[in-house]
Structure formats: structure tokens, C-alpha cells
Design a protein around this nucleic acid. Structure first.
Lengths: 200, 200
DNA sequence: CCTACCGATCGGTAGG
DNA sequence: CCTACCGATCGGTAGG
């Protein structure tokens, strides 16, 4: 009978991914060494290689899980909006709040997604890119329903990318425990979508 | 008597920086090799090292020049606005058009600035970071004058970063020669700042 | 402007 | 025979 996998195998992988996200976000994937990651995890390099066969496999698992989580947020937000019987604009606003709440806890992962996905092998890179396209398509759908007059077929994608810009750019400047909270910033984004920056 | 510097020394440096921006943007600074850059430039590696003493010095020159250019845009836009006797919102809109027109031709440089500045030595990194802070401060000033009711002291920085998000994020999706032009996108950003996404 | 080559360090794997 | 791990070192390649 084969010996079962240690019960904390998955938990240790999760620990490694947390450390890797921090290290890769700080130094860049290519510059970060597996030796450095092993030390950060309190493991020997050989033990680290027990959990991930290659450095690439580690990066892929990190981005695979994270992009799946982001896609799941869309479904969750739509479900929550239906439960609360929200209208279309309110459903989009709910997703914006959920996205920023996620970014608040996933800053390093988001930085790695944006800067290091291109370091993956072409096939793996394509899979992650497709996930991001699916996310954009889902948000475009919500935004088209929320603001049908402005989000014409001609402009819907550009407006979606404008929204992703506002929200995703936070990884460069917004910090948990900073003066401006992620929650307050979400409301600022929503208010700007609603009526722009002119005084009321 | 010291041998004079070749008259095309500066021009060749410019060529190298153009190729380096493309290569670094594509592969990442750490993963791109000086050998690969030399080949892309049609030079031997030794000749490349004639123009830049180290790989770091090349990256620094690239980002030093580019951030200086971005800062100069603010001064130029303000001068142009004064010449045309534009009001405060129109002055900010002029800068948004100028920024996007610059990004249209500097896509690779912008990608390198956003992803690889952290690879510089701490002192050089600090200088580039300060340039970006100066740029943010200048835009915050324009935005506060343009939209004084919304851009309160409490919210001005966050709104500025929201604007930078919309505009800077283009490096991930907007392409010269694509369906949506940089000029059209600038107008979309301006319209959103003016009145949001609700139908008029 | 080239070929030849260095000291250092990388990702990944061996035996036990 | 398995797993979970260690100390040591491999071949290959980077910047210079």
C-alpha cells in the first residue's frame, strides 16, 4: 500500500507560495534565487525541491491559483448581487469592492502576476493570459450592463481597461495600513464611475 | 592629446537604448543578456561595453532620460495651456493628451520603468523614484486646480493615482496601430473625469 | 572592435 | 520498499 502524502503537504505548499510571492515581488522572479527562497521558508533547498520540481512550476502554481481566485470573485460578486437583488450598476460596484478587498491581501501576488508572468514557458504563459482575458471579458459584460449608454461595443473594452487601470494600479502605491484604506478607495472609484470629478 | 569622442557616440547610445528598451520590456532586465543586446544592436559584446560600462549603467541611463522626459511634459503642457489661455480643467486635459501621445511612442520604456526600476542599485533607484514622485506631485497640483471640489487634500493623491492608473495601464493593452487610438483613449479618459460613465 | 576567458553564482540533482 | 529531508556538488551560463 502506498504511503499517503503528509497531511500538511498542502499547507506547506501554501506557506512556500506566500514567501515566494513576497520574494518575487521584491526582487523579480529572475533575480530571486531558490536558495534565497529556501532560507526565507526555513527549509533547505533540497526540501524546497521536494514541494516544487522546478522554479518555473512554482511560479506557475502561484499565478494559476491567483488568477483562478480572481475569476471566482466575479461569480461570487454576481451571486451576492443576486441575493441582495442589486441592479446592474450596484453589481459592478460590488465586484470593484471585492477586487480591492482581495488586492489588499494579495499585493505581492498581484505584482508578480503583472511583472513576471512573461517568464513562464509559452504554454503556461498562454494559460495565464487566457485567464486574464476571461476576467476582462466578464468585467466588460458587467460594465456594459451597468452603463449601456457609454459602454458601446466600440468603447466597452477601453472603458473596462480604464477601470482595471484605476483598480490594478493600486499595487504601485496603495498599502494596507496606509492613510487611505482599500475600502475608501473602492468608494472613490465607484463615485468617479458614477459622476466623474466635477463638483456636485 | 586625448582622442575626441566620435561624433556619432550619442546617436549610437540612443540606438542602444531603443534596442535595450525593447529587449528589457520583452524578457525582463534580469533575464535579458548583454550578449543578446549586442546581437540585437549588431555589435560585439565588447563594443557594447564601450558605450556603457555596466548593465546597470545602461538601465539607469534609460530610466533617467525617460523620467526626465515625462517631467518635462508637465512644464510643456502648462506652457502650451497658458499660450492658449486654457482654464484649469483644460490644462489638465492637455497634459493627459501629451502623456498618452508620449506613451504611444515609448511603450517599451514605460514597461521597463514600471517593472525593472527596482533592479537598480538603491541610490539610483531612489533617484528614479523621486522623479516619479515629482511627476505625481505636479499632476496632483493640476488636478486640484481643475477639480477643487472633489480633489480635497484628503482625496487629491488617491484621485491622482486613479488617473495615473487609467493612463499608465495602457502599457498592458493599448498598442500603436490598434483599433483604439491613443488619441481616442485620451478623450475617453477626459470624458470620464468630466462626467463619469452614466448616460447623459 | 574581436576572441578568449575569468570568478561567481545559478537551477537542479546526486548519494545516504 | 516508501517518505521526507540533509550536506555537498553537479553542468552550464551569466556579467564583465
Amino acid at each position: 500500500m502506498a504511503r499517503p502524502i503528509a497531511s500538511d503537504h498542502g499547507a506547506k505548499q501554501g506557506d512556500i507560495l506566500d514567501r515566494a510571492a513576497e520574494l518575487f515581488a521584491q526582487d523579480g522572479y529572475a533575480s530571486a534565487s531558490m536558495q534565497g527562497l529556501a532560507v526565507a521558508c526555513g527549509l533547505s533547498k533540497a526540501t524546497l525541491y521536494h514541494y516544487y520540481a522546478t522554479k518555473d512550476a512554482l511560479l506557475f502554481d502561484l499565478l494559476d491559483r491567483y488568477t483562478q481566485r480572481l475569476l471566482a470573485l466575479v461569480a461570487e460578486s454576481e451571486a451576492a448581487a443576486q441575493r441582495k437583488q442589486l441592479n446592474d450598476p450596484a453589481t459592478l460596484h460590488e465586484l470593484i469592492r471585492q477586487l480591492l478587498a482581495t488586492y489588499e491581501r494579495a499585493g505581492p501576488r498581484h505584482a508578480v502576476l503583472l511583472t513576471d508572468a512573461k517568464q513562464l514557458a509559452p504554454e503556461q504563459h498562454a494559460l495565464i493570459t487566457q485567464r486574464q482575458r476571461d476576467l476582462v471579458a466578464a468585467v466588460t459584460r458587467l460594465l456594459t450592463r451597468a452603463y449601456p449608454e457609454r459602454a458601446t461595443p466600440e468603447h466597452a473594452t477601453a472603458l473596462t481597461m480604464m477601470l482595471f487601470g484605476m483598480v490594478n494600479w493600486t499595487f504601485t502605491w496603495l498599502k494596507p495600513q496606509g492613510r487611505m484604506s482599500y475600502h475608501a478607495f473602492a468608494e472613490l472609484v465607484i463615485a468617479t464611475l458614477e459622476s466623474g470629478l466635477q463638483g456636485s
